[in-house]
Amino acid sequence: MILQTAFMGLFGIAAIWFAVVVFRTHSMVRSALALLFSQAALGAMFLAMQAEFLGVLQIMMMATEMAIMAIFMVMFMMDPGGLGQMEMTHQKRLSQAAGVIGAFAALGIAFLAGWGNPAATAPGPQAQLRGLGLDLMERSMLIFETAGVTILTAMVAATAVAVATRSATKRKEDRE
């Protein structure tokens, strides 16, 4: 239990540190990589919490997701390398206040609510996967299917939005 807590704390601190780096560095590539490390540290934290499948899933998903994100960042940013030290923030006071209040509200609930006795042991990886599979195909099947349909809708929507502007771009180019 002590070792588990120590590793969770270690990976948790790593995740928090890299999450801070995401918004402090000026370079976009560094920012995307810091987010990748932050999410991977969360994945390692899930592994420390004995959620093997979820931990590996998190690390794999985030590795690909952040690689794609890095490409888009370099495409869309004015100053991807961060060499110009461009100012990229606005409403700083309000955001800091909102962040601190949000964190303290969550902390207040976390520490004031009575969670009952924590469970000492978790099922092994095989039992977990079996239980998750049965849950997905029985009790939570409708929710799981809804997620699938949502993915399909989002795919169609994202493609439609990205393609629809092509004619607008063409008109703009013709004008120029």
Binding site: M49, M69, F72, F76, M88, S95, G102, A103, L107
Partner: peptide, 28 residues
């Protein structure tokens, strides 16, 4: 005890994310 460590990390990550989402000017 480990539950509280995890909740602490979750709350701080939420605060950092909220700050970032409100303060950054770029969509990405």
């Amino acid at each position: 005890m480990p539950l509280y460590v995890a909740l602490l990390v979750g709350a701080i990550m939420f605060g950092i994310g909220l700050y970032g989402a409100l303060s950054q000017t770029n969509l990405v």
